[in-house]
């Protein structure tokens, strides 16, 4: 089934492509990613594809003919298929000490015990949907649906590197110390971001993530 897209203007060298849901974004991203790699026609001018929850930003060079690019995006969306299962991806195991300051609050909000929150978080594989908040930060989707919690109304001024949190339908890990509003379940020692590594981000879009509980 083709992906329905709406092309929204975003300046002189980009289109913000809006879709109906995250699955459509990821299907479109995978189709356009292949075209950019081949680099034919306007695709050779595209520098970045930036997926988010409902949108994909297509960024081209300043010299690009935006109208030609729009035609190419629409044509590609007709070929994209949001219903085809995505190919198996690489799996990263993330060891977590579930000692986060919000573990009990998340338990209270979800009606589970703290132990049940931990087994729900480790029980289903998550998948990296997109990045964007900070280098190496990955929005993880596809977890246990009971773990949907709001973010804090007042963000913490300091969240440590490796903190594992929940916000809305997403789970995520803070790559470096920063302010942040996610509800924190625990901590990992994995290095999420290393500019000297290729690729620098451990969790790239499409990666499957399994959280594994380790002793506190």
């Amino acid at each position: 089934m083709p992906v329905d897209v709406r092309l929204l203007p975003m300046g002189e060298c980009a289109w913000l492509v809006e879709t109906d849901d995250l699955e459509s974004v990821l299907a479109l991203e995978s189709t356009l990613g292949g075209l950019v790699e081949d680099g034919d026609g306007p695709w050779g001018e595209v520098d970045d594809l930036v997926p988010a929850a409902r949108t994909l930003l297509v960024v081209a060079r300043a010299t690009t003919d935006l109208t030609a690019l729009a035609h190419a995006i629409r044509a590609a969306a007709t070929d994209a298929d949001a219903t085809t299962p995505r190919p198996a991806s690489r799996v990263v195991e993330v060891p977590v000490r579930y000692d986060g300051p919000d573990l009990d609050a998340v338990a209270a909000q979800t009606g589970l015990t703290a132990a049940e929150v931990v087994s729900a978080h480790t029980g289903t594989p998550w998948r990296v949907a997109f990045g964007g908040f900070a280098p190496g930060f990955a929005y993880l989707v596809g977890g246990d649906p009971r773990l949907v919690v709001p973010r804090h109304t007042e963000p913490r001024t300091r969240v440590p590197a490796g903190a594992v949190g929940l916000a809305g339908e997403f789970s995520g890990i803070y790559p470096r110390e920063s302010p942040g509003g996610w509800q924190l379940l625990g901590t990992t020692d994995l290095v999420l971001w290393d500019p000297d590594r290729d690729p620098p981000a451990l969790l790239t879009p499409g990666t499957t993530v399994r959280f594994v509980e380790v002793p506190r």
Binding site: G11, A52, A53, R54, T55, V59, F133
Partner: peptide
């Protein structure tokens, strides 16, 4: 839902005062 930004984008938070994104703006 958070979406990608570009240099030059004018975001308007609920308070109504615009912020013009420069080179080091967040990606989304």
């Amino acid at each position: 839902a958070s979406e990608a930004l570009v240099r030059g984008a004018i975001q308007v938070p609920p308070g109504g005062l615009p912020v013009l994104c420069l080179n080091d703006s967040p990606v989304t």
